[in-house]
């Protein structure tokens, strides 16, 4: 099965420092589940400002960890949350973003 992450960018940034990659993966794993939970909470409380801010904040991390389909979905979620009108689409995007993050987390836990 194809990995749901791609560390090419991180490896390029690491300059061959395996320890750095390990630390960055650990940081991602530490934060990923809590970010998913926060998306769900913001959805429940209709706090779309906070949702937009979180989507904006995690974009670079998602990019660096190579969660390619999720990166586009996070961008869409940010835009949708900013508008705060299409709740069905927001719900769908939260689900897909969290699925992408949790899937990558699963793979990373297995590989590291």
């Amino acid at each position: 099965m194809e990995k749901r992450y791609n560390l090419e960018k991180l490896e390029s940034l690491s300059g061959g420092d395996a320890n750095f990659i390990k630390q960055m993966v650990e940081l991602f794993l530490n934060e990923s589940e809590s970010n998913c939970v926060r998306f769900e909470e913001y959805q429940k409380t209709n706090d779309y400002d906070a949702m937009r801010a979180l989507a904006h904040k995690i974009k670079p991390t998602i990019d660096l960890m190579g969660l390619h389909p999720t990166l586009e979905e996070v961008s869409q979620l940010k835009d949708a949350a900013e508008e705060g009108t299409d709740l069905e689409r927001i719900s769908d995007l939260v689900g897909r973003v969290n699925q992408g993050i949790r899937g990558a987390t699963e793979d990373l836990k297995r590989d590291f």
């Binding site: 991180l10 940034l13 690491s14 300059g15 420092d17 750095f20 630390q23 960055m24 940081l27 991602f28 934060e31 904040k57 670079p60 991390t61 660096l64």
Partner: peptide
């Protein structure tokens, strides 16, 4: 930067 992940990436990049 309040994003620990990104700040660490920047720090690593700078200190190369």
């Amino acid at each position: 930067d309040d994003d620990a992940f990104y700040a660490k990436a920047l720090k690593h990049n700078i200190e190369r």
